[in-house]
Design a protein around this nucleic acid. Structure first.
Length: 449
RNA sequence: GUGGUUGUAGCUCAGUUGGUUAGAGCACGGGAUUGUGAUUCCCGGGGUCGCGGGUUCAAGUCCCGUCAGCCACCCCA
């Protein structure tokens, strides 16, 4: 092996280095996720960054192994895998204490995940993903509450119904729609796979593949018609479609779901679209995806109901509904829409802007006093920064202070006195060094008269 | 795993038909001058041109390989 070749020191494929401004943008998104979850009554949890590989093959089969990072400890026998998703950990944690947990249990997390796939736009090998789950409640109200939480986080980031669409569907509705058109239950999964491709393949390809699954052209076109367009729940055509699709049983579930979505104030964001089925085999009821409104970018979020999964992981039969929202696509959409705030606005929102930026007026006694001033402000609980520049150009130093986003600039004049300048208003007043912290905390300047 | 495309300072780029010590702006650091929020001027650090090989008297420039980025397919928890 050659030693020290430069590529050894590049970050691994599909990972990101977060410089201060980059990390602040992630924190901005995470803060919206976290505060929204908490407001909606979810408790934050987390699990290990890696799990036993078996935990993932139980749900997804051996085929998943090539999609994740797995490893063995040197000398060890068990195989581990970096977590590619949270649901198995969640199920394991819930199952372990199911008897003691309330119904519903509402949990969220927002950690990093790892998938061994080729990176492309909107998809990396390490990313953050927000997960919210409601366990132990099988009502349409729980489905709606979950969707509302996802929507509110997007709203907190400045997005609106004009920017994104929540497209809602239901596995059972799609199954009934297929059944009334002669599809046998054992073919449902094959059909879901095909339905998931609508939008990626053209109409002829769809009909070809539908015929391959034993559907005649006429019915295939009829199904396609139903799938391609997202419609408003209130539209008469939606009602007709629902009663047709659900074999006359009536769109009872959707009526309840939409009433709850309206009550939560998010119905404007939501569309009904039976074409949303999600690829995953384990969904059992409602499924939804959130996309940029024009269809640009990958899905911002996706989720649904998985009433059998907790049992699969050894827990008691427990209805559950959840979603995941990654930071990568969300960041792209915010940037596309011009909704990613400037660095300093983000810092303001995160509370990381300095309270004071301390500079010297260039005299020897001020230079000597500067460190002490900074120290006293910090001990007083203030976020104080200082100039490390050697220049005595006060204008340049104030420029640095302004660039730091600090509320005040302290210009040290001597070992006892300073000028306190409000950088937002430009006002300035002399203040004894002993009183600086008090005035800065007050957020004001002393006025002469 | 497959295909396309790109690769010169931290960033945006310039580098004639291959020709000597590889440039600019911004950013960063220092100094001078105005004592107060992009003043002006001067100076500086930083690149083995992604990496490796080949052709040539001579390669940032041509050829091959490789790595990485981006985009798409596959897949998408």
């Amino acid at each position: 092996m050659t030693q020290g070749s430069s590529h050894s020191f590049q970050a691994p494929t599909g990972t990101r280095d977060f410089y201060p401004a980059d990390l602040a943008r992630v924190r901005y998104i995470e803060q919206a996720w976290r505060t929204t979850s908490i407001r909606h009554g979810f408790d934050e949890i987390d699990g290990p960054t890696f799990e036993h590989l078996d935990l993932y093959t139980v749900k997804s089969g051996e085929g998943i192994v090539s999609e994740l990072f797995s490893f063995q400890r040197a000398g060890g026998e068990r195989t581990y895998a970096l977590r590619p998703e949270f649901t198995p950990t969640l199920a394991r944690m819930f199952a372990a204490r199911a008897g003691a947990l309330p119904r519903p249990t509402k949990w969220f997390c927002a950690p990093n995940f790892f998938r061994a796939e080729r990176p492309q736009r909107g998809r990396l090998r390490e990313f953050r993903q927000w997960n919210c789950d409601i366990l132990g409640d099988d009502s349409p109200a729980a489905d709606a509450e979950l969707i509302a939480c996802a929507v509110d986080a997007l709203a907190a980031l400045g997005l609106g119904p004009e920017h994104v669409k929540v497209r809602v569907s239901h596995r059972k509705a799609v199954e009934q729609m297929l059944a009334t058109r002669g599809v046998r239950p054992e073919m449902f999964q094959a059909w879901f796979t095909l339905l998931d491709k609508v939008g990626k393949i053209n109409n002829d390809q769809f009909i070809d593949q539908a015929r391959g699954l034993g559907m005649d052209t006429q019915r295939a076109m009829n199904i396609l018609q139903m799938l391609v367009t997202a419609t408003r729940f209130e539209e008469p055509t939606t009602q007709v479609m629902l009663s047709e699709a659900m074999g006359g049983q009536g769109p009872d579930y959707f009526k309840k779901l939409w009433a709850e979505l309206r009550a939560a104030g998010v119905a404007d964001w939501c569309w009904l679209n039976l074409g949303i089925v999600r690829g995953l085999a384990y969904y059992t009821g409602m499924v939804f995806e959130i996309h940029e409104a024009s269809g640009a970018e990958r899905a911002i979020a996706g989720g649904g109901r998985y009433d059998q999964l907790i049992e699969l992981f050894g827990g008691p039969p427990t209805p559950a509904v959840g979603f995941g929202m990654g930071d990568v696509v969300l960041s792209l959409v915010l940037q596309d829409k011009g909704l990613m705030p400037a660095d300093q606005q983000i810092a303001a929102r995160l509370g990381t802007l300095p309270d004071a930026f301390v500079v010297s007026n260039g005299t020897p006694e001020a230079d000597a006093a500067l460190s002490g001033v900074v120290g006293s402000l910090r001990r007083a609980g203030l976020h104080a920064r200082r100039s490390y520049k050697a220049t005595r150009n006060v204008g340049k130093l104030i420029q640095d202070a302004a660039r730091s986003g600090a509320r005040f600039c302290v210009i040290v004049e001597s070992d006892a006195g300073a000028s306190l300048k409000n950088l937002a208003t430009g006002e300035q007043a002399p203040v004894p060094i002993a009183d600086l912290a008090r005035w800065i905390k007050l957020g004001e300047l002393p006025h002469a008269g």
